[in-house]
Nucleic acid binder design. Structure first.
Lengths: 225, 225
DNA sequence: GCTTGTGAATCTCTTCACAGCG
DNA sequence: CGCTGTGAAGAGATTCACAAGC
């Protein structure tokens, strides 16, 4: 559980802050597109939906510095955030479970920046094996090839789009092969050793939250993930 | 923004608690399946990934009561949670954006409990209009039919699986037609009037969180949504 | 013994507010 | 002036710890 937070002990930057930084970077891309060379905390806050003080504190926490009255240098700030968010040589991602959701997510991530690349897909359905999927990603492989492929490709991140009953097993295999971060779409709480991070995306719970607050619409505001 | 929380002002139950209750219910279904008639807070905690004290406080907050040493009556507890989570006559849901993600999510929610039913789907691509999708849901309609359909069907929840640039417009239309809760998959911060709840599901940010903590794997633990 | 219910303490995150600089 | 950087205050959420009940 730990809905939305989860405390990486001993780690540098809190989970919430990392999530916000990811959004700040997206906002920065947009501001750069629009020709801004300097940005202010209140601009980022407006576009990312937070408060200016929050933005400043987040940036301070990760050592991005601005200058009074001149704001932050847009390029410098983007670089500063990316330096924190991205591993030097990029990171490789494996997706497990080529169902509807897996297929939908694949192109979504595939056309994504080079720092994170889905390079392998696994499924246990023989009919799916060998299927060519997206540019830069090996054709679908069987689960028995998972460990070796993940290890050899240096994959460190796994996306789980398998049925609930298969999620823990798939997670175990990925972790055994060296994966340290998981995005889990299965509505199951995964047991993972310390040092492995799990980001749960629970569509059912998300819908139920929206349903609850839609129903009890007194005056709720925003939620998020 | 507000990554993972978001404060419904004046509302009864905090967002985090609603999210956890949704998971407790799922855990209860499982425990009932296994034949349990009474459950303890520590059982729920173990399966939902929290602490027993957290479970008890959540249940206390919504008025579900157990009995010392006997735990909670499983059926009673499930009923108690559902009474809070579910609106009496059920709630109807509209999905906007029939791309890869929308198509994947549709069956995922469609075979879901009767309390929440996707009854309408909208897209602005003429080729998709009229397409029959899932049992109990009207064929795909054009955006120009959105307002009337949403209003007439009493739809109160919207799922946005449209491209980023179309999200705000779609949200505005849904809200104008009476929707009070949104699940937003577009990587954009929606501007909504007070009283409308937005649950953001940001796949990119989720992946980047996993990437960050996989990379800086000192000893992080769990995250969640 | 075992459990629940809950005040109090603790911890974490967010906002306030202002000094200091351009 | 406006904006950053940041200590201090505030608000929430979580855990502790224990009285009371079975």
């Amino acid at each position: 559980m730990n809905p939305g937070n989860g405390a990486p002990e001993g780690s540098l930057v809190p989970v919430r802050t990392v999530a916000r930084l990811s959004q700040y970077r997206r906002v920065l891309d947009r501001l750069l597109d629009e020709g801004h060379r300097q940005v202010f905390s209140h601009q980022i806050a407006a576009l990312a939906g937070g408060s200016a003080a929050q933005v400043r504190r987040d940036l301070m926490l990760v050592g991005c510095r601005g200058r009074p009255s001149k704001g932050y240098d847009a390029y410098g700030l983007k670089g500063c955030i990316e330096e924190l968010l991205q591993a030097p040589g990029g990171q490789r991602v494996a997706l497990v479970g080529l169902g509807n959701l897996g297929r939908a997510i694949l192109p979504f991530f595939a056309r994504y920046r080079p720092a994170l690349r889905i390079v392998a897909v696994f499924d246990n359905d023989p009919r799916k094996i060998g299927e060519k999927l997206v540019e830069g990603c090996s054709p679908c492989q069987g689960m028995e090839e998972l460990e070796q492929t993940v290890r050899q490709s240096g994959i460190t991140i796994g996306v789980l789009t398998v049925p609930p009953g298969a999620a823990q097993g798939a997670a175990d295999e990925l972790i055994a092969a060296g994966v340290r971060g998981l995005v889990n779409f299965a509505p199951v709480v995964l047991e993972v050793p310390e040092g492995v991070f799990v980001e749960d995306i629970d569509l059912t719970t998300a819908l139920e939250k929206a349903a609850y607050f839609a129903h009890h619409a007194g005056k709720p505001a925003e939620g998020g993930a």
